[in-house]
Simulated scan of single mutants.
Amino acid sequence: MVAGLPTQALAIATPVPLATAAGFSVLAGQGVTNTGPSVIGHDLGTHPNPAISGFPPGLVLGAVHAADAVALQAKADLVQAYNNAAGQATDFALPAGIGAGQTLLPGVHTAVAGVGLTGDLILDAGGDPNAVWVFQIPEALTTASNSRVLLTNGASACNVYWQIGSSATLGTSSTFVGTIMALTSISVTTGTNIEGRALARNGAVTLDTNRIFLGGCATGGTTTGTTTGTTTGTTTGTTLGLIGGTLIGGPSVNLVGGGTSGNVAGNTSGNTVGNTAGNTTGGNTSGNSAGNTTGGSATGGNDGKPDHGKPDHGHHEGPGKPDHGGHGEQAGGHYGYADKPTVHEG
């Protein structure tokens, strides 16, 4: 008979899905207050209280979301993440006092009351870069001055989560690792650094000359860019074809009689043929008697002189409609289509 050796229970801790809250280094419910030159590596936000003070001298390297829609969504995602962490099944009991060189393996570590951290706490991944720690603390978390959370054998701060049932207070000049998800508030005292996040559901986050960064953790978040350009060009010309005798993009120009061959040949080259002999072959039978001799309506027509009393009865646009399309500039600022100023369209 071979005696069985005791084995460690299989750790069941799984990464906590932070969703959009992953992009925040600091997130609060009742505002963020800072003293001194703190540096926040990613986004800072608060909702519903928009109060943010102490920046500057503090510096936020990400975006600031003061009670906006982004902060609202991140807070909703934080609630889901908090509940996920709190609902994971226990692997190990977590004593009220931790640190002093203590080593903890991956898994879900559950306390029955508040926890105090003194000295060094070592998290050992045993060579597994995907190892996860979830700490379930139903009351407060307090760390002593100069205390440290240390990572070894492939452990990553991205996979360490602290679910705190009330508030967290980190002692002066301490080093902390992991994402803090506190139900109430978080106080990060003078000189303390966090490789992770400080996320408070309902209370405030207080900072004092701290550095909070995410290392190589994926930050998730929302789309940060918007469409920055619009269509810069518009249609600058009109279609010069004819559909059913109508010019597209301009007024109705219903052609009568010989308009098809007269205007195609005449207008294309400035009515050179039609207007030379009084529009005889261009379709405008009566013409303008020897006006339009060289240019036709396309190059000025009528020598640029208005003919107010003599409409062209030989080429009407329709019954009772004189053809003003061949005129040059007229008194009162009116223009023929060929000589219209470029600022006019149609």
Rank of each mutant, 00 (worst) to 15 (best):
M1T: 13
V2I: 15
G4M: 13
P6I: 09
P6Q: 14
Q8R: 15
L10V: 13
A13H: 00
P17F: 07
P17M: 12
P17D: 13
P17V: 10
L18Q: 07
G31S: 11
G31A: 10
N34D: 15
G41F: 06
G41R: 05
D43T: 03
G45C: 10
N49P: 05
S53K: 09
P57S: 10
G58V: 07
G58K: 07
V60A: 11
A66L: 05
A69E: 13
A69C: 03
L72A: 11
K75P: 07
A76Q: 13
A85H: 03
Q88T: 06
D91E: 07
G99S: 04
G99E: 00
G99Y: 04
G101N: 05
L105Y: 12
P106W: 01
G107F: 01
V108Y: 01
H109T: 02
T110E: 07
V112P: 01
V112C: 05
G114D: 06
G116V: 11
L121G: 01
I122H: 08
L123W: 00
A125S: 13
G127Y: 02
P129R: 09
P129C: 04
V132P: 00
W133M: 07
V134G: 00
I137Q: 03
P138S: 06
E139H: 10
E139A: 14
L141Y: 00
L141P: 00
T142F: 12
T143M: 07
S145C: 02
S145D: 15
R148N: 14
L150S: 08
L150C: 01
L150N: 09
T152Y: 04
S156H: 11
A157D: 05
A157N: 04
C158Y: 01
V160I: 10
V160P: 01
Q163T: 06
I164N: 00
I164V: 15
G165H: 01
A168G: 12
T169N: 14
S173Q: 15
V188D: 00
E195L: 15
G196M: 03
L199K: 05
A200S: 08
N202R: 05
N202S: 12
V205F: 03
V205N: 02
L207Y: 00
D208F: 13
R211K: 13
L214C: 08
G216P: 15
G220E: 00
G220V: 01
G221E: 07
T222W: 06
T227Q: 15
T228G: 12
T230F: 13
T232G: 14
T235N: 11
T236N: 11
G237H: 08
G237A: 10
G245P: 03
I248P: 12
G249Q: 09
P251E: 08
P251S: 12
P251D: 10
V253R: 14
V256I: 15
G257L: 02
G259Q: 03
G266W: 03
N267L: 07
V273R: 12
V273G: 15
N275Y: 09
T276C: 03
N284A: 14
T285S: 08
G287T: 02
N288R: 10
A290N: 11
A290S: 14
T294V: 06
G296E: 02
S297D: 15
T299L: 09
T299N: 07
N302D: 11
K305H: 10
D307W: 09
D307A: 12
D307P: 03
H308K: 01
P311A: 13
D312Q: 07
H313A: 09
G314T: 08
H315T: 09
H316I: 02
G320M: 08
G325V: 06
G333Y: 11
G333C: 04
Y337E: 05
D339K: 12
K340E: 09
G346P: 09
